[in-house]
Design a protein around this nucleic acid. Sequence first.
RNA 1: GCGCGCGUAGCUCAAUUGGAUAGAGCAUCGGUCUUCGGAACCGACGGUUGGGGGUUCGAAUCCCUCCGCGCGCGCCA
Length: 618
Amino acid sequence: MADAPSTPLRPACDPATELDARFRAAIHAVAGRDADPAIRASGNAKFGDYQMNAAMALAKELGKNPRELADAILKATDLAGIASKCEVAGPGFINITLERAVLESSLASLAASSTFGVPPATDPHAVVIDLCGVNVAKQMHVGHLRATIIGDSLARVFERLGRKVWRENHLGDWGLPIAMTLAKLIREKRDFARLTLDDLNAAYRGAQKETATDDLDAAREFRCGPHRLAELELQYEPARAAMEDAKKTLIRLQSGDAEIVRLWERLIEVTMEQVYDAARTLHCKLGAENNRGESFFRDRLAGVVDAFAKSGVAKSDRGAMVVPFADRERPLLIQKSDGGFLYATTDLAAVRFRTFELDGDLVVYVVDARQRDHFKDVFDAARLVGWSKTKDGTEATLVHLGFGAVLGADKKPLKTRSGENFTLKDLLDEACERGAAEVMRRAADPNAPTHGLAESELRAIGAAVGIAAVKYADLSGDLTKDYVFDLDRMVAFEGDTGPYLQYAHARIASILSKSGETAEAIARAPFALAEPAERALALHILRYPQMVLDVGRSLETNRVGLYLRTLAELFNAFYQSCPVLKADDAAVRLTRLRLCAVARAVLADGLSLYGIVAPERM
RNA sequence: GCGCGCGUAGCUCAAUUGGAUAGAGCAUCGGUCUUCGGAACCGACGGUUGGGGGUUCGAAUCCCUCCGCGCGCGCCA
């Protein structure tokens, strides 16, 4: 996966920013040139808070002894007011322990920031996220889960980074398959006002079956005798008729026939209802305003081929228009020999629209990994013709974020074509149901904080918990890897799960509300990071803005999950060893409440990057 | 055939993008427990990171080569 362009931005409240500046200056003084100090969080608390790793690589380049170079850099570094302890270790690491006051003031500045320390974006261009990608007249299946929640989560990350974000739902709402479905429904004289998605789905599959002429095509391919061909042609007469009907319907649709267009719009309406429902359930920001499908680009397709032909990037081959590439045999087909356009043509029109009209300098396609070759071709073709530039000529980054396939328990791709498999709706219903059952079971305990809540309230919390389980299971892993679809694992509530994070959040919220202090009073309390557990928690909180920047750069949503899991663990450790409400000293009580408040806010904001809600009680 | 992707504990996955002793969850076993919320915490067990070679102070990570699995490959989307 290609990286998005890296931003030089560094969070002001992250102590690593100041360490970077100081060591950079020291390296310059010692080595006579600029180099990345490679400041990293310590992997192990016994090595301090941060480490500077640049000395080893630099020593190699300069032909010096790494430990001696590290010593020299350390001597040249101004550590006043930042590090309380700093020493060379191992082959040439420099281990750094921060002054407590630095941690406290940094944390205060993060707490005061409305973006939790994330620096505001300086890039005025937009980020475009291609997500969801449903097809009209087809049921959403589990594959759409990934394309929807990964895309939405990335969009949320870029919004947190202060970027203008376009969520683009590139609907499959045009072309022969839709016309076939439409034609079949019309032939059957169906009442379009009463159509359900299941009806559409059945019609879609039926139309595919009716018009299939695989055997006939194969017979031609293998040059069967005239008798055999005539026999097959007779057998396939109904298929031919259905196809004729579909093509006529397509032409009427393309020419803007009012009646056909009305019925077509109805198909989209029925299909999209389920998408909006699923998006609501999943807490994904996705609605009708995000719809920009194949039909939107239909008038631009001829222009695409024209532009490629005129520029000489495309050439005619066997009656079709293709874009050849210098480094590979396989060309990209953009127009069929019968004059028809292909999905590559639409994708090229969309690239142009997204870079030039939406002004995106980063366009991310959240589409499954099997289309890797296709997008490589489309992006390369777009670059060849100069369409990868924004309005002001900035070269845009085009990225295909190819996520792994959804596999069944047998490790084979989950097929929904024959229709016997569960739909996305089935999965979401099950997740909400299990979440609700779990919440209600616990609420039955008279000591539970949720005891006595109305059933509707418990069901709402249960849905939030069930959906969190599903989303976290998906987003916290490596996106490029295949996905083993296991409902029991996905809706698990214990261990490394979404509900575990929600639980940590609810506990903190509970402490804060039981304290009897107002939020204002807590916010005024100073930080006093005396205990190791407090210190460790604070250090990790300070890494939040850098983590968000890293996700924006790498598009790896699993970093959010890793960060939040660690945050929850560190909070639990703090909670274990440092009494808050039971603290004997009033000032200690208040400063620990302050730490709780910041931890809660960061946890909630991090969960919001996944589109996971954090209930106060569960 | 060509191209691309993936192989880490019994299972599902991590590993701060080349850093110090490869970590979690589930499962199994043991402990914490009249609780600031047990959906929790602590510990034990479990590994030749598919095999081999190379690069270097240092490799699960980069290069080469095998092996295994998956996906894609001109008129579908």
